[in-house]
């Protein structure tokens, strides 16, 4: 084995930082959008009209039973045939949102299902509509219950985002692939990128835990 030389990465520091920022931003934005989709999906599954619940159930099954990379390829390479052409970044964002949307639908639904029937009835008895009860009574405790599961899923999506390098979206993994194709320092570059993903996971886990404690205080 030849000698390790991490300094060989220095000329590519910019590419790494840009890739890292892309990964972080992509994760943040698709997490927000994905949880919004999941919340609406969970509403449809638990309290919405029958047809909407059925539609969401089908969506969840399709996404959970197909590989993420195929979903991504379908959106980026498949949709243009249907006249929808997206940039690499938009396709990556859409694929991750749809993916997290499906998983978080199921996670949030579990939290809603755990709501005691009495809380619904108390809300309804106070002349709130079903939607108002969902929004003001059910949602916060449900999120609190499933926050750890949701946090794990967000991390999984962040790690899974490395796949978007396959459609040339310029994320952290894309940067790594690019650098090692130039300087052939595969060990150094993937070692560093592995460490970066690890640090990112740890930081996100801590941030999500802190956010959870703030949004859903223990009482």
């Amino acid at each position: 084995m030849r000698k390790l030389d991490f300094s060989a990465l220095l000329p590519y520091a910019d590419a790494l930082v840009e890739g890292l920022i892309f990964t972080v931003v992509l994760t943040l934005v698709s997490t927000l959008a994905g949880i919004a989709v999941g919340t609406v999906g969970a509403w449809a599954r638990t309290s919405g009209p029958r047809w909407a619940g059925g539609l969401v159930a089908a969506y969840v099954e399709v996404i959970r039973n197909t590989p993420f990379i195929v979903q991504l390829f379908f959106i980026f390479f498949g949709l243009p045939a249907a006249g929808v052409k997206l940039s690499e970044a938009s396709a990556a964002f859409l694929a991750m949102t749809i993916n997290l949307g499906a998983y978080s639908t199921e996670i949030i639904r579990a939290g809603i299902d755990a709501t005691p029937k009495g809380h619904w009835e108390a809300g309804l008895s106070l002349a709130m509509s079903r939607f108002e009860v969902f929004r003001h009574v059910v949602l916060a405790p449900a999120f609190k219950k499933v926050w750890p599961a949701l946090s794990s899923q967000i991390i999984i999506v962040m790690l899974g985002s490395s796949v978007v390098s396959q459609i040339s979206a310029e994320d952290l993994t894309y940067a790594a692939n690019f650098i090692q194709s130039r300087n052939f320092r595969a060990f150094e570059v993937y070692f560093l990128v592995t460490a970066l993903y690890l640090a990112l996971s740890i930081a996100m886990r801590a941030a999500l835990a802190a956010l959870g404690a703030k949004l859903f205080p223990k009482v």
Partner: peptide
């Protein structure tokens, strides 16, 4: 239900809201 109030055996207070918020929620929302 604007005209009929109900109190339950199991209280059914909203656990994430304070006593005051529990009381004020329906006046606020409805």
């Amino acid at each position: 239900r604007r005209k009929v109030g109900m109190v339950f055996q199991q209280f059914n207070l909203f656990p994430h809201l304070t006593a005051a918020e529990n009381v004020a929620l329906a006046p606020k929302v409805v």
